[in-house]
């Protein structure tokens, strides 16, 4: 399946894109998204271990299954305030 992944902050700057389209085998997990992201965008490879991944508006751990059409968002640790 194809899955669009949105990027923020340093992840977006390193990739040079605010969205990456990944091709994943089903069923796919958040962990698979992390791996595919590093493969698809080599500039992101060092960062991927430290990336946080959200599905919709909630943080997701690597075991969560993702489906086509899910809003998947990847970003480095937050620094608001």
């Amino acid at each position: 399946m194809k899955l669009a992944v949105q990027l923020y902050a340093r992840a977006r700057d390193l990739a040079g894109l605010d969205q990456v389209e990944l091709e994943l085998n089903e069923p796919a997990s958040v962990g698979d998204v992390r791996t595919a992201l590093a493969d698809c965008v080599p500039e992101l490879a060092p960062l991927t271990r430290g990336l946080l991944i959200a599905v919709g508006t909630d943080y997701a751990d690597d075991s969560l299954t993702v489906a086509a059409g899910d809003t998947v968002v990847c970003f480095p640790p937050v620094s608001g305030g």
């Binding site: 923020y8 340093r10 946080l52 943080y59 968002v73 970003f75 937050v78 620094s79 608001g80 305030g81």
Partner: peptide, 8 residues
């Protein structure tokens, strides 16, 4: 807020 809200 500083710990979990996605703002950078």
């Amino acid at each position: 807020l500083k710990e979990i809200v996605p703002i950078w």
